[in-house]
Structures are given as structure tokens and as C-alpha cells.
Simulated assay, not measured.
Amino acid sequence: MRICAMILRPTAARLLCSVLLLISLLPPGATAVWLNLPASGTKCVSEEIQPHVVVLADYAVISEDHTRGIPTLSVKVTSPYGNTLHHQENATVGQFAFTTTEAGNYLACFWMDGGDKGVGASVSLDWKIGIAAKDWDSVARKEKIEGVELELRKLEAAVEAIHENLLYLKAREAEMRVVSERTNARVAWFSIMSLGVCIVVSALQLWHLKRFFQKKKLI
């Protein structure tokens, strides 16, 4: 922030640095991933997403060995609770889209089909989340907006996404604080119980040793 203030005027510097801070608070929007699938085995990509977020992804198989044709793969996308959101077999290209209903890690797994065992391939995955997955061209045509108004609408959506992300982080922090407090309370009770058991066992040992020495007439 000091660098911004040195280069620009104070007002412009504050505005630019505020925009950069807002951008840093944005949740992940678009992620392009390149996966090298082995001949056998599975590779997965996970993303932690909030509820009520639109997810759109395109994938395609790319093979360097053109003499054998393009191999096919299987794709499975699951929610944090194990629900299958997308499943496709014998695919070379495809797309999946859904709106999240629960918060957590969403998993997309890829593996080679049985007929292509022994052949590896590369997969291009374009994963878009939230405002990055929104079709702004359709919005512009439907609402008849363009230019600055369209850009303002995008900024408004970005601000809403930041606000929702902050609320989500606040809720997660509250949940973690409750879990931490419960864990600390349980550890404290366990420590007290352990100390009580040690005291009782020590007292029983002293009582037993005293009776033993009395029977032996040592004391």
C-alpha cells in the first residue's frame, strides 16, 4: 500500500489499493488445469465451494499419439457428501454444470476407460466458479445493456461475491471457534478425570501397603 501511495496521488492510490484488496478477497473464479492421466489409476481435482454457487467446467482429451486415435476416459464429479453430480464414460470431450447445495470440497475424478488400458493421455479442464461461470453475453442481450453499464453489472456481481465470501468465512470461523471451545472443554474434563483417577489409585495403593505392613507387623 505504501508503494501505491508513492506512485499515485493519494485519492487514486487509495482507490487502486482498495480495488486490489477487493480482488484478493474474491473466491476462486476460473481455474484452467492440465492433467496427465496415467495408463492406470485416477487423478482428481478438488475445489472448496460455498453453497448456492454456479459451477461450469469443460474438459477435453488431448493425445500426442495420433496413430492410435484419441483415447476415451471416464469422469465422475461428487459433492462433499458423496452425491454424484456428473458421471460420463467413453468421453473425449464433455461439460458439467451444477449449482452447489452444500459447502465443502467438490471432487472431479478422471481415469482411462477399460478399452484404453496401457494408453495415457492429457486432459484439459477449464473450471469456472461463481461470476466467472455466468454467461454475461446472455445477460447483456436479455437486459439490453452494454459498455459501461455491463461492466458495472459485473463489478456489482463481484462485490456481492466478495460479501458472500466474507460471510462464509465468518461462519466458518464461528464454527471452528465452537469446535475449538468444545475440544478445550473436553480436554479439561479429561485432565480433571485423569488427575482424580491418579489420586484415587494412589490412595488405594497407600491403604493396601499400610494393611500389608500391619499384617507383617512391620509398623
Rank of each mutant, 00 (worst) to 15 (best):
C4V: 14
A5P: 06
M6E: 15
A12Q: 14
A12K: 08
A13Q: 05
C17W: 10
V19Q: 10
V19H: 05
L22E: 02
L26C: 05
L26M: 13
P27A: 03
A30S: 14
T31F: 04
W34S: 15
N36Y: 07
L37H: 00
P38M: 03
A39K: 01
A39Q: 10
T42Q: 02
K43T: 12
C44R: 06
S46L: 05
S46N: 13
E48N: 13
P51Q: 01
H52E: 14
V53M: 02
V54L: 15
V54W: 09
D58E: 10
A60S: 14
I62K: 09
S63F: 01
E64L: 03
D65Q: 01
H66R: 10
H66E: 11
R68L: 08
R68Q: 11
G69S: 06
G69N: 03
I70M: 08
I70R: 08
P71Q: 01
T72L: 06
V75G: 00
K76A: 06
S79K: 00
P80A: 06
G82N: 12
N83D: 15
T84W: 08
E89C: 09
E89V: 13
E89Y: 10
A91N: 08
A91E: 04
T92M: 15
G94S: 06
Q95R: 13
A97D: 08
F98D: 07
T99Q: 13
A103W: 05
G104S: 00
N105A: 13
Y106L: 02
W111C: 03
M112L: 00
D113V: 02
G118H: 07
S124L: 07
L125A: 03
L125Y: 00
I131G: 00
K134Q: 10
W136Y: 10
R141T: 11
E143W: 08
K144W: 10
K144S: 12
K144E: 04
E146P: 07
V148T: 14
V148L: 10
L150P: 00
E151F: 09
R153A: 13
E156V: 11
A157V: 06
V159H: 11
E160M: 12
H163T: 11
L166S: 09
E173F: 14
E175L: 09
R177P: 09
T183E: 04
A185W: 01
R186V: 03
R186T: 06
R186E: 07
V187F: 03
W189G: 00
S191G: 12
S191Y: 07
S191E: 13
M193W: 07
S194W: 07
L195H: 10
L195C: 10
G196V: 02
G196M: 06
G196S: 05
C198I: 12
I199K: 07
S202M: 12
S202D: 12
L206F: 15
W207M: 15
R211M: 01
R211A: 10
F212W: 14
F213V: 14
K216L: 12
K216F: 02
L218D: 08
L218P: 04
